[in-house]
Design a protein around this nucleic acid. Structure first.
Lengths: 223, 223, 223, 223
DNA sequence: CATGAATGAGCGTTCATTCAT
DNA sequence: TATGAATGAACGCTCATTCAT
């Protein structure tokens, strides 16, 4: 079953009443905890239902399959990421701080987006079979970030083309290191995750700034 | 429940006849393809046996469990990595080329180690529950690389302590970017993977060189 | 590997609804028939489920393993034995009939306990790997019987010590002959088993009475 | 698969050469040990072959199935029993010792026949699915013993009919108690089994003598 | 709407048996 | 004849999913 969705993945019932909405919340919260602890394969729908204090029948009332729950969880994460990154990017566009500060703030935002619940995000982005549609949404988010970053770089002495490729790479790198350093090295979430993540933020920022500086200078490596 | 190994993971029968050896090869080859295509969870021993053109009984003659196949595959990869990286490191130690060339050759080696079969390596290092012993071997390989790289940096104006921390980080980063850029972006293996991977090699090298340069200067980012 | 219990053997779900209770009954009834006909080894959970007209999943809903079914069946038998023997022993203690009548009634009770379903009991006590706990319960039942019988003998001219050893032996012998004569000789249960068993009751009683008489006299056999 | 033989159970090749004969012996010896230790179900043909130091192919050269080995083992036991019991019966017929001595010697023979390897005999007669043919042979042996014993009793004041029924019962009882007391109570064979078994011999003899005495007197139990 | 008993395809695995060498 | 690699039916068991209540 590689990445493919063969069954309904959208939530079933658009919950209109407050009670239903609460049930959905309780299921998703339970699922987040169970997926984070047990991993994708070892998580069973019955587990999730039990943890949520809801009958298995009710769970299937709202989510047509195990994967649908995972998709809903992922969508929430992407929603949040869009919101947070949009906010930061807007602020940076308005305030126009020095490049190192801009980069650091962007990286911090990305790291914090994942550090809050590393276990869950590991499952979401490494173990789970996400449907193509969601993967596209994630890709789109990255493209958007890259475009915004390119505009930012334009204001710091990069020419248009330079800025575009450098920004695209930077986004990839940030994503990549975030996953590596945060998901694998930071212990199980818990309080204090924000402080625990800060060294990673600095190091990743340092890396990106070094790269961008070289790029702006038009540097190239000898083959 | 990742990382846990509860059953025998060593190959069962030390194959003595040529026929058996061939069977082992055919099973591992099939398993590599199935794991790469279907992912860890969706790979079944029956699929592997069928793909290998071997009865399920024969598969279990040589591998006591699904995970044992995975372990064997991983060990082959680590064996190869140790061999290749050792060779390159030795060559660099002897030839003492400029830093940018050294870094580029190391990165190229790492990238090529993974680019040959990206799908498989994604499964091996992201999805699969590797036993502690193997994880240690991998960690040891990284430690060794970092040490070798630190020696290299020592010959390029880094002081001892600087070299150690920078090397450790650089290895992490190289690993990380290799996985991200190579495993996720490079299409399904096939011929021409070497050429397809080269831009990644350049970009990762550029990134590392920028980082190392900053480190050598003792630079720090404003918080 | 007899006697070993490695997995859960207690029933899984305490059935709360009437429907579940019926399912449990139907499974146990089917299992009794299948075990009796096919023996322990040849009985499969799928056979039992099929015979019960229940899906294999339902079977495992209530019993975590094949052995758990066996244990449940055995416990029912031991429950019944405790009840019946307790009742008879109490009656004998109250009525104080002549020894031969007392022995005969005890033997009849034991024989009837097994004659109702000889095939099943053969499996239960000869073939099956019962967990230690259950074996203890059975042993306790025998100890209790021996104690009660010793008291009875005390009222028929045995001195204390004589009564104890003779009673212990008598219980062993009764058990043994019950199994041999009833389980192996009486045909497949069916109606009329009570009448078919009666000659055995008489003969076993005769044997025990002869033995007890000799014991009381303090007789010994020449080596 | 209850008790029924669906495949060939006779040894395949009547081994004429000394080498083959030795192979058969070595297989049977290994099988006896493995069956005794592991029980019927847990004994695998590969185990037996390995223990015998013979390839699995060779094992199947001589025995067409797992059960065939068991049958061969059983037949050896029955052969031995016929021989031993025949010898003792003949001696008793010639010497005409007192009844208690005769009974004791018979019982001792039966007990020793089983006490030598209790584990194996438990498997042979309780766990294993013996084919009808063998069961008949065993039954025939018992019939023969009963007839011989009846003749013996005829010489000790029993009338013809009395002797016949008493002898039949006595044989059943001896068999039964032998299995119960010897197989279940005597520890795992080993040296000293002969001494360990002697108390059982005495007790069983005592029991039978009490019974026979009552029978000769024409005693009956009140229903 | 909620419940939870019931379902059954499919999994990983074993082992008696065959047959090419 | 002897070998042991290969076979595959069958097993015990799980869990995502359905549906009668």
């Amino acid at each position: 079953m590689p990445t493919i969705a063969k069954k309904r993945l959208e939530p079933r019932r658009k919950p209109r009443q407050a009670r239903s909405q609460a049930t959905v919340e309780v299921i998703l919260a339970a699922a987040a905890r169970v997926f984070a602890r047990a991993g994708y394969a070892a998580t069973t729908t019955n587990h999730v239902a039990a943890k949520a204090g809801v009958s298995i029948g009710s769970l299937y009332e709202y989510f047509p399959s195990k994967d649908a729950i995972l998709v809903a969880l992922t969508e929430r994460h992407v929603d949040e990421a869009e919101r947070e990154l949009g906010r930061v990017l807007a602020a940076l566009g308005a305030a126009r701080p020095p490049l190192d500060e801009a980069i650091t703030r962007l990286v911090r935002t990305m790291v914090e987006l994942h550090a809050r619940d590393p276990g869950l995000h590991r499952v979401l982005f490494e173990e789970a079979p996400l449907p193509a549609k969601l993967r596209e949404r994630v890709a789109l988010l990255e493209t958007g970030m890259a475009a915004a970053l390119a505009r930012l770089l334009g204001g710091h002495g990069f020419d248009r083309e330079e800025a575009r490729t450098a920004a695209a790479m930077a986004v990839q790198v940030a994503e990549s290191l975030t996953h590596r350093l945060v998901l694998h090295d930071v212990g199980r979430s818990g309080a204090g995750w924000r402080e625990a993540a800060e060294p990673h933020v600095r190091e990743i920022s340092l890396l990106l700034l070094g790269y961008l500086e070289r790029k702006r200078a038009g540097a190239a490596v000898r083959a």
